[in-house]
Simulated assay, not measured.
Amino acid sequence: MSAVDSPVKPAPGGSPEPSPKKRRGLKVVLIALAVLLVGTASAGAIYAYTINRSVSQNIQRADTLPTDGTGGTTTGQPTVTETGTLDYVLLGSDSRNTDPGDGRSDSIMVVHLDKNRDKATIVSFPRDMYVDIPGYGMNKINAAYSFGGAKLTVETLQNLLGYKMDHVVLIDFQGFIALTKDLGGVTVKNKTAFTSHGYSYPKGNITISGQKALWFVRERHALPGGDLDRAANQRNVIKAIVAKGLSVDNVADPVKFTAFLSNVAKNITVDQTLTDADIRNTALSLRLDASDIELLQAPLAGFETVNGQDVDVVDKTKLAELAKALRTDTVDTYLKKYPKG
């Protein structure tokens, strides 16, 4: 890579992180975790078997975890936690194909479950983050998926954070947004009026479904904050899907709820080590609701232009603190120091 062509510019408003309220929204692939890990427990014993079978029959598995033969990462010296925490890498794209060269991942997140299973932290990594991709050098983080598929993306995250991930979940992005149609539409609060692909999105509360919902979460060029604003729209839509999909009325209807879970599972691929028993056991151990979930963005220091491309600059000091908080299960301490994420 060539030298940086322009100096670092401060992030909009002094910080690229979302507001405290938006940190509690759920970004796109969180619905996979929420439904698969919480859904079976919340549905009740009456039709739990039907739900488990529905998920098991529809979910797919693939070889997506990097390994050195001993369960560790392929490069670096990550620290393996011994606290009983769980960390999932969630990758969202228009395809669940895990092969290298199959496009770039649309969203990249790490979901951390604390050892008490009463708190979850979801850290999103902007796709333009400028990081070291093992074997390829500095590039945007979403290029890792194009170079080496899910395995290289996970390896990149492990090297960036300094510890090993437990599981990987790949999401068919378009399929997940289609759930808005299954639910009869979802209502979200749109902070910026814009148009995209023939659809109009006025400011305020709007109800969207199907293709209109898909372009709402895909559009970034018409938004003042670009990709960061798009990520906020993604979180708002998935929060609405989760709220409606896991509502009392929906869960109380066995046919409706089972169909919902089946459609979710059809759009998910998990790593080969994540068994049905793991999913059920984790579900039974959880004691959290939406208010116990913190949504953070990996810290950025600003923006640069490299080789004519705009990239997001990593705040290395703050990211090291966040990584340590995740690794040592002390996220509460991190949030006290950085209440805005």
Rank of each mutant, 00 (worst) to 15 (best):
A3E: 14
V4T: 12
D5M: 12
P10L: 12
A11N: 11
G14V: 01
S15Y: 00
E17F: 06
P18Q: 05
S19V: 04
P20A: 01
R24N: 13
I31T: 14
A34Y: 12
G39T: 03
T40Q: 13
S42Q: 13
G44S: 04
A45M: 07
I46F: 09
I46Y: 05
N58W: 01
R61E: 06
L65G: 04
T67Q: 08
T79G: 12
T83W: 00
G84P: 02
T85M: 09
T85W: 01
V89Q: 06
L91H: 06
L91G: 04
L91W: 06
G92N: 07
S95K: 00
S95R: 00
T98R: 11
D99N: 14
R104S: 04
S105D: 08
S105C: 04
V110A: 11
N116E: 15
T121D: 02
V123H: 01
F125G: 10
P126W: 01
P126V: 00
D128K: 00
M129C: 14
M129T: 15
I133N: 03
I133P: 03
P134D: 05
P134N: 05
G135S: 10
Y136W: 11
G137Y: 00
I141L: 07
I141Q: 02
A143V: 04
G149C: 01
A150K: 00
K151M: 11
K151G: 12
L152H: 07
T153A: 10
T156M: 01
D166C: 05
H167Q: 06
F176Y: 07
A178L: 05
L179N: 01
V186E: 09
K189F: 14
K189L: 14
K191G: 05
K191R: 13
S196T: 08
G198F: 08
P202W: 03
P202M: 09
K203N: 09
K203R: 13
G204A: 06
S209W: 11
G210A: 12
Q211C: 04
L214E: 15
L214N: 13
E219T: 13
H221Q: 14
L223D: 12
D227E: 11
A232I: 13
Q234I: 08
I238S: 15
A240H: 03
I241E: 14
A243V: 12
A243W: 03
K244Q: 11
G245D: 06
G245C: 04
G245F: 05
G245P: 09
L246I: 10
N250R: 12
V251W: 02
D253R: 04
K256S: 13
L261Y: 08
V270C: 01
D276N: 11
A277H: 02
N281F: 05
N281G: 10
T282K: 12
T282D: 15
S291I: 07
I293Y: 08
L295R: 13
L295V: 09
G302C: 06
T305M: 11
V313G: 05
K316L: 10
K318W: 08
E321V: 07
A325V: 00
R327Y: 00
T333C: 02
P339L: 01
